[in-house]
């Protein structure tokens, strides 16, 4: 059974492996370059005061990370969609389309065992692929995380290429593809629907992690640049007056136009607003919620995918047509 699964799906396995290797090489080169640059150019100071050396270093690191990061940014959308369309959708649809299920299901192996072997084998491969992706992205990110440059894997740019996110997305997409293939019994419609649903899921969940838990709230006690702790997930920020009522920045702007002037960018303006009783509030998720959020999203994806897969498989295997 393992041989049959491999023989029928080796193309997908090989192409995915090859793409992961290519990505690994690109990230290795980029990561080594960044590490080398950081070792030579990272300012010794903690850069609270923004010296030219500090900003030059930040700009260079930012440029380096984003040249590759832009490519990586497409992965959370593209990779699950392709996995679903090419690993999942043909799994049953192709058998039905070519009538080969009649051949395979009349050998001495029950169709249940046959499908179980395929789902377990390919599901494990897909999950492993997702974990490998995270496994090569994380050291690459770590190479950039040299102070004063900070890389935050809770940041939505990286959240879905680290931890268990790629594995969860890939496995869910695979199950989705298999289910649509079982329901449509034709490869192309199953692939199209899988691609569509994957895209919908991606855009639907794009900003969703902020709401996976009630955010924590930090109120400004003195004038500082950043309120939320490092590596946390920023949700929103707003102003309150001395009575605690919420203000939009526009309303504050109007109220303070007299005493504080209109140039909001200066520190003086900030101190002026502060002395008038205004406080800035930031809502955020602390860094230690990273894994909680990873598992929450994994659940959001995997529970429907597993249920849909279960229903589709039961329907497909029922000796009916």
């Amino acid at each position: 059974m393992l041989w049959l699964t491999w023989r029928q799906h080796r193309m997908q396995v090989l192409v995915t492996t090859a793409l992961l290797v290519v990505l690994g090489v690109v990230l290795l080169i980029s990561g080594l370059g960044a590490a080398g640059f950081a070792a030579q150019n990272a300012p010794a100071t903690d850069c609270v005061a923004d010296t030219p050396a500090c900003s030059a270093y930040r700009v260079e690191m930012n440029e380096r990370i984003h040249s590759v990061g832009e490519l990586l940014g497409w992965l959370p959308l593209l990779a699950p969609a392709l996995i679903g369309a090419f690993w999942g959708a043909p799994l049953l649809a192709r058998e039905f389309e070519h009538g080969t299920h009649q051949l395979t299901w009349t050998q001495s192996v029950t169709r249940r065992r046959w499908l179980a072997a395929k789902i377990v084998g390919l599901g494990a491969a897909v999950t492993l692929g997702g974990l490998v992706l995270a496994g090569i992205v994380e050291p690459w990110l770590a190479a950039f995380d040299v102070p004063p440059y900070n890389v935050d894997r809770f940041d939505m740019s990286w959240f879905r290429v680290v931890g268990i996110m790629p594995a969860a997305w890939w496995l869910s997409a695979f199950l989705l593809g298999m289910a649509t293939g079982a329901l449509f019994r034709r490869t192309l419609p199953a692939m199209a629907v899988t691609l569509g649903v994957c895209a919908l899921a991606f855009f639907g969940l794009l900003r969703a992690p902020s709401s996976y838990a009630p955010p924590e709230r930090a109120v400004q006690a003195q004038v500082i640049d950043e309120l939320e702790p490092e590596d946390s997930l920023y949700v929103t920020s707003y102003w309150i007056d001395s009575s605690g009522a919420k203000f939009t920045s526009q309303e504050r702007h109007l109220a303070l136009a007299g005493p504080c002037g209109t140039d909001e960018t200066t520190k003086k303006y900030a101190q002026c607003t502060f002395s008038h009783g205004y406080r800035q509030v930031v809502e955020f998720h602390p860094a230690d919620r990273f894994w909680q959020f990873q598992w929450t999203e994994a659940g959001i994806l995997l529970i429907p995918a597993l249920s849909l897969g279960g229903v589709a498989v039961r329907r497909a295997l029922r000796p009916r047509i």
Binding site: W3, L4, Q8, H98, G99, Q102, L103, T106, Q107, S108
Partner: peptide, 30 residues
């Protein structure tokens, strides 16, 4: 299942398999 062999109407086979691989298929599943 092992007692019955079935040859469906269109005689479906895996087109991408070689003949030897089809035999291997039979060997693995029976």
């Amino acid at each position: 299942l092992a007692r019955v062999a079935f040859l469906a109407q269109d005689k479906p086979l895996y087109d991408g398999f070689t003949v030897a691989e089809m035999l291997r298929f039979g060997h693995h599943l029976n």
